[in-house]
């Protein structure tokens, strides 16, 4: 009799195990569909915006207030705009003014609104072989880096930073630096690129926020303040006339939220206690 009981127990436990497994897997499906009644919208943004932690800081208030999940897809600026141009995102937050204007002109984006700004800085090795230190002129600095053939690390990923960098090279009269071997094009995010520049004691264009939060022990801030290094962030809603799935209403709510006095103040306060500096300056100056 006990042998039959043993076998029965074996069978039962195997059945029970398989059932629990299947149940476990199915909870995913259910949690995906049924339990989350909320609305959501897809925000395509850049890695530097996301990696700073700013969005994690300000978005929860919006999500709670409107019972809406903001699904943040953080990719390079180029990819963010490309996603939006396919109708795979509802709203975008990027920092590449030329590309943004093109985006609006082509009819993909509406309600382009200035949200916040910070600036880029040129970092380099402390011994500064190209001697650009404290020169407030970014164009000149780049010219000197090129003429001294000092190692320069580029993000090379069509990000806002990369695009700005290309603009400065053009102004400095340096054509296609990618073909030179002192120029390293990585195709990576700001953090990773900073790492590489740090390892190689190279020059690099970075946004202030990432440099402050990441740090780079071998690099120093050599050039800042040039108006050319101004880095504005704009928000756009994907044109609902082009794509019928765009959450226009929710996008509008998010826009209003971002430019509200409260949020703008929150943006200003972000990271100040940790770094002693403002990382993102709100668009509205009188706060």
């Amino acid at each position: 009799m006990t042998k039959i009981n043993e076998q029965l127990l074996n069978r039962l436990s195997r059945v029970a195990l398989s059932l629990t497994l299947v149940f476990f897997l199915l909870t995913l499906v259910f949690s995906g569909c049924a339990l989350k009644p909320e609305r959501s919208l897809v925000l395509a943004t850049t890695t530097s915006t996301y990696d700073s932690g700013l969005l994690e800081f300000i978005l929860p208030a919006f999500e709670d207030q409107h019972n809406t999940k903001v699904k943040v897809v953080a990719v390079g600026t180029g990819q963010a705009l490309a996603l939006a141009a396919r109708g795979d995102a509802d709203v975008v937050l990027v920092h590449a003014p030329d590309l943004e204007e093109e985006f609006v002109q082509k009819g993909f984006g509406v309600q382009r609104t200035f949200i916040m700004y910070n600036d880029f800085v040129i970092l380099g090795p402390s011994n500064d072989p190209a001697n650009i230190r404290r020169s407030p002129d970014a164009t000149n600095a780049f010219r000197r880096i090129a003429s001294t053939q000092s190692t320069f690390v580029s993000r090379g990923d069509e990000s806002g930073t990369h695009i700005k960098e290309r603009v400065i090279w053009a102004l400095a009269g340096v054509e296609s630096p990618e073909k030179d071997n002192w120029y390293l094009s990585l195709g990576q995010g700001m953090g990773s690129s900073l790492n590489v520049a740090n390892e190689k004691h190279a020059y690099i264009l970075s946004d202030r926020g990432t440099f402050l939060s990441r740090g780079a022990s071998n690099l120093a801030m050599l050039t800042e303040g040039d108006p050319l290094l101004f880095n504005p962030y704009h928000f756009m809603i994907v044109n609902p006339d082009k794509f019928n799935n765009v959450q226009m209403e929710l996008g509008q709510l998010l826009l209003d939220f971002l430019i509200s006095a409260e949020t703008q103040e929150k943006i200003r306060s972000f990271g100040v206690d940790r770094f002693g500096q403002i990382l993102f300056n709100p668009a509205s100056p009188d706060l």
């Binding site: 995906g32 897809v42 109708g87 799935n245």
Partner: peptide
């Protein structure tokens, strides 16, 4: 799965599905 792709109507992009 992209919006203008053949299976865009499923809405599965950027979801667990």
């Amino acid at each position: 799965l992209s919006h203008n792709g053949p299976l865009g109507f499923l809405g599965w992009l950027f979801t667990p599905f």
